[in-house]
């Protein structure tokens, strides 16, 4: 493992301690993030309990094809992110840089697919407005849909920027592959991925079991 002094930063006494601290700080932040999405999920729970039919019809209007592709993209990206973390642990610069940038590419692919889906949704007037095709409470479902996927996309965008930034810095030897930022970035990435898995179930699956 490298003795690169750029890994340890003020005010940490040792790399090991810093690694622990950075992970701890990121977990604390993710705790906050969970409550952020929690507020949104609460509104979903309340309205879905009040209007189960409307939520089923809203969900039926979404395109599960895009959603499923995107789930596959993100799950793969998380796998590659884990490889980046492995690379970081063994100190291999090439692996970290390549995996970080590939992860970011998968994230971009997700956003591209999401963009196509958004275009189609707008075409079908699924934005709550005068031409909205479904019964009014389904507007609540689509309000959730837009806010939740929008907020998730912004989170993903931040993750992509971080991954690109770290990947390039590691590739250009401006940053050691062992940098503690790698683990923080991977924790964040997995969190954003997990949020999507929940959103996938809540947005695309209601009413599709045929029951």
């Amino acid at each position: 493992m490298s003795d690169d002094p750029s890994v340890v930063q003020f005010p940490w006494p040792t790399v090991a301690r810093q690694r622990e601290g950075v992970a701890f700080g990121m977990w604390t932040f993710l705790g906050s993030e969970i409550l952020f999405f929690g507020g949104l999920l609460l509104t979903y729970a309340v309205y879905r309990t009040l209007y189960p039919q409307a939520f089923n019809s809203g969900s039926a209007a979404t395109d599960i094809f895009y959603g499923t592709i995107n789930t596959a993209l993100l799950l793969t990206s998380s796998f590659i992110m884990t490889m980046a973390l492995r690379g970081s642990e063994s100190g291999s610069r090439g692996v970290v840089a390549a995996c970080m940038l590939t992860t970011a590419a998968f994230g971009l692919a997700f956003l591209a697919v999401k963009g196509l889906e958004y275009a189609e949704d707008i075409d079908k007037h699924l934005v709550p407005g005068p031409h909205f095709p479904l019964h009014p409470p389904a507007r609540l479902f689509f309000a959730f849909y837009w806010v939740a996927t929008g907020v998730h996309a912004i989170h993903l965008l931040v993750g992509i920027l971080v991954a690109v930034f770290l990947g390039i810095r590691v590739a250009l030897r401006q940053m050691a592959p062992e940098s503690t930022a790698i683990e923080a970035a991977s924790l964040y990435w997995h969190f954003v991925d997990s949020v999507w898995i929940v959103l996938y179930a809540l947005i695309y699956l209601p009413g599709r079991s045929g029951a």
Binding site: G38, G39, L40, Y47, G129, R139, A143, V147
Partner: peptide, 27 residues
């Protein structure tokens, strides 16, 4: 974060007309 989300929902409703708390749509 809960405050952040509730304000974001207000912003969504005012800015984009996404009816989260609008009683006319069952909110």
């Amino acid at each position: 974060p809960i405050l952040a989300m509730s304000l974001l929902l207000i912003i969504a409703e005012r800015l984009f007309g996404l009816p989260v708390f609008n009683p006319n749509d069952g909110g």
